[in-house]
């Protein structure tokens, strides 16, 4: 009985540690991919495209668009930073670069993030953390360059980033924030 419980505990623990990592799958080219398709009832492809563009420009202003903005589908490159240390004492540890594809059709869209690469950061003489020269590595092969603990951590962070990206994109496409209305002023000299 005890042995069974311990095995059960170990299984749960290992599943917990791999929770984010498992969000990434492999595509037909053996590259990590995060893929999603969602229905958007009542929304045209154009509306979804415009909201998607606004989403990226607002929340990911540093993405570099690789396709003309008028194209119905979006192709761009982006990156996010990884941090080391606790929530109070921490610094940039590296960046994960990715390619993002979003395709829109009436009442649905699909997207995928892929071509993940990792660049470790180092501290420069001015106290800034900057990309280490010549150390860009594909996420699929970071096991060859980094320890298992480090590579697992970056895979987990990438999985978590993709999951959060997908959630935010969906929220934005469903419920685009309205532009701020002009502030109504109360005139006190009139009843």
């Amino acid at each position: 009985m005890n042995r069974n419980l311990i095995i059960l505990l170990l299984i749960f623990l290992s599943k917990l540690s791999n929770a984010q990592q498992e969000l990434l799958s492999f595509d037909e080219h053996n590259k990590y991919i995060y893929y999603g398709v969602n229905e958007m009832q009542g929304l045209s492809a154009d509306t979804l495209h415009n909201r998607g563009l606004l989403f990226l420009k607002t929340l990911f202003p540093r993405v570099v668009f690789k396709s003309p903005l008028k194209n119905i589908n979006i192709l761009c490159d982006g990156k996010f930073l990884t941090y080391s240390g606790s929530s109070v004492f921490k610094h940039e540890q590296g960046e994960v670069n990715y390619s993002l594809n979003i395709e829109f059709k009436d009442e649905k869209y699909r997207f995928w993030l892929t071509n993940f690469t990792y660049i470790p950061y180092e501290r420069d003489r001015y106290g800034n953390f900057v990309p280490k020269l010549g150390k860009e590595m594909a996420l699929e092969s970071i096991n060859n360059e980094l320890s298992k603990k480090e590579s697992d951590a970056y895979l987990n962070e990438t999985g978590l980033f993709c999951k959060q990206f997908a959630e935010r994109l969906k929220i934005y496409l469903l419920n685009i924030p309205k532009k701020e209305e002009k502030l109504k002023k109360i005139v006190t000299d009139k009843w």
Partner: peptide, 26 residues
């Protein structure tokens, strides 16, 4: 970490803009 698949519950919220980087200590 499960991707939201209904969208309805999430629709009430609006994503916040990306915050400034944290205080970096090294």
């Amino acid at each position: 970490v499960m991707p939201a698949d209904t969208g309805k519950a999430a629709a009430a919220a609006t994503p916040a803009p990306t915050p400034d980087p944290p205080l970096v200590f090294s």
